[in-house]
Design a protein around this nucleic acid. Structure first.
Length: 193
DNA sequence: TATACGATCACCT
DNA sequence: GGTGATCGTATAC
């Protein structure tokens, strides 16, 4: 299999483009030499300090520092006392933006994922940002990892997705002002929703 | 030091 | 439909 990994140029673009084009690409996690993977089916964009739903809306802090760094790095945060969420840093150095990976469709290592997730049905393994991190053993030890270089976590290019099959909606689960809540910055593969 | 809360999920009715 | 779990952050004192 000669899948090519997405490189820096892919991530170093407008965040909405990256969020949209990540759909259908393959997220890969390698643990003890075993490949775990799934096709990305849901993303959300978080863009800049002006975006009140973005963690960087309160400026640069130790937690948000990664978002200000080079595109292609993982931004992983801990939330609600028990879950992790995986983002990919986008755009340019100095501008805080990232794409939250909200859902994948499992491909490789499904049994591993089922063990991690308490042996649930396949459809319940990775259909949420906290769930997919649990399934793939992704936590803050991987924060700031370079997805363009690491052999532990990266994204592979797949055949291009039909743009007509993409659904666009407002972001969900956020507490922010009305303007931020209305922005259509969530992307899903149509046949998934 | 103390406190309020969150880019969630599972389980309940 | 609603709510509790559980702790790192940010912010206030």
């Amino acid at each position: 299999m000669s899948s090519s990994r997405l490189g820096r140029d892919f991530y170093a673009r407008d965040t909405l483009e990256v969020a949209r084009e990540l759909l259908g690409q393959r997220l890969v996690r390698v643990i003890d030499g075993e490949r775990l993977s799934g096709l990305i089916v849901e993303t959300e964009a978080y863009i800049g300090e002006e975006d009140r739903a973005c963690h960087a809306s309160h400026g640069r802090t130790p937690r948000t520092e990664v978002m200000y760094g080079p595109p292609g790095q993982a931004y992983i945060y801990f939330i609600y006392g028990m879950y992790h969420c995986l983002n990919v840093v986008t755009d340019r150095v100095g501008f805080p933006a990232a794409v939250l990976i909200r859902g994948i469709q499992p491909q490789e290592g499904i049994e591993y994922m089922r063990r991690n997730r308490g042996f649930r049905r396949e459809g319940e393994l990775t259909n949420g940002p906290g769930k997919l991190c649990q399934a793939l053993t992704i936590d803050r030890s991987l924060n700031a990892l370079d997805l363009c270089q690491s052999d532990l976590l990266f994204i592979e290019e797949t055949a291009e997705v039909d743009p007509g099959g993409i659904e666009v909606t407002p972001r969900i689960g956020i507490r922010a002002d009305e303007m931020a809540k209305r922005r259509p910055w969530r992307f899903l593969l149509g046949d998934k929703a």
